[in-house]
């Protein structure tokens, strides 16, 4: 009886969003008695987990819309790769399918009065819900006003709409276009520059583009660079593509 209710309780707190990296035991109350030295248990290294597996949240229409938006935010152009080469939409899809999309670690209890600009995110929607609602509203707006879904429009027309959202000229009913746009911007940047294990920054194109050497761990030889360029190929948590047959 006790055991069952305890299990139910644990399930409840896990659902509520407590940080557990694959091992629910990590979230249980523990006692470490002094005199036994530093705790050590096999198999407890907290390697990355969330967002490293393919996840699917978007419908194909939603995916096309997010792909089109992020390709305008970080365009592929003559200066270098953009969101498309980096796999930004793949990254965002995984994020929306996981705890981030569910708003699982955020405080999401009401009431929900209108917030002030200094009070941050006050949408009742989780990030995934916000994407879903706002994409539907954006595509409906585009159909009505421009005769096609956002993804089907010319790039100039897309830019004009995004600029309109930013300035508050384009708004939707029931969901804040501005809050959505600001979240997409944030997620697009994350997808362009995150470690490739999360599906974005594919082949480290974002890092290579700006000259970031990635997950290196020792620059002692370079401290006295005195303003000269340090040209190091980037390394990710899994190494470099040529180090691994899997890639």
């Amino acid at each position: 009886m006790v055991r069952i209710s305890r299990r139910a309780f644990i399930r409840q707190i896990l659902m509520a969003g407590t940080v557990v990296a694959g091992f629910p035991a990590a979230a249980l109350g523990r006692q470490y008695r002094g005199g036994e030295g530093m705790p050590w248990e096999a198999g407890q290294t907290h390697t990355p987990y969330y967002g490293t597996e393919p996840g699917t949240f978007f419908t194909s229409a939603e995916r096309a819309c997010v792909d089109a938006i992020t390709a305008r935010l970080i365009p592929s152009d003559e200066d270098g790769p953009g969101a498309r080469e980096a796999g930004v939409v793949e990254f965002i899809d995984r994020q929306m399918a996981g705890f981030f999309g569910r708003g699982q670690r955020w405080y999401m209890s009401g009431p929900w009065p209108e917030g002030l600009p200094t009070q941050g995110y006050q949408s009742q929607f989780t990030p995934a819900q916000l994407y879903r609602e706002a994409i539907a509203a954006l595509d409906a707006w585009c159909e009505t006003n421009r005769g096609g879904s956002f993804a089907a429009l010319e790039e100039d027309a897309q830019d004009e709409i995004l600029t309109g959202i930013e300035s508050g000229d384009v708004t939707f009913d029931g969901v804040s276009a501005e809050t959505f746009f600001s979240l997409v911007k944030e997620n697009a940047i994350e997808g362009f520059f995150c470690d490739p294990i999360y599906g974005g920054n594919r082949d480290m194109v974002g890092w290579s583009y700006v000259g970031f050497p990635g997950a290196r761990y020792d620059y002692r030889d370079f401290v006295h660079h005195d303003g000269a360029r340090i040209d190091l190929p980037p390394v990710a948590l899994m190494g470099r593509p040529e180090w691994s047959a899997a890639q």
């Binding site: 470490y32 995150c194 948590l237």
Partner: peptide
Amino acid sequence: GWRDTPTHFPPTIAQDELR
């Protein structure tokens, strides 16, 4: 929870900006 260098932020995983 318990946290220490070898299990929670060794140099094989510590440099993870997103996480």
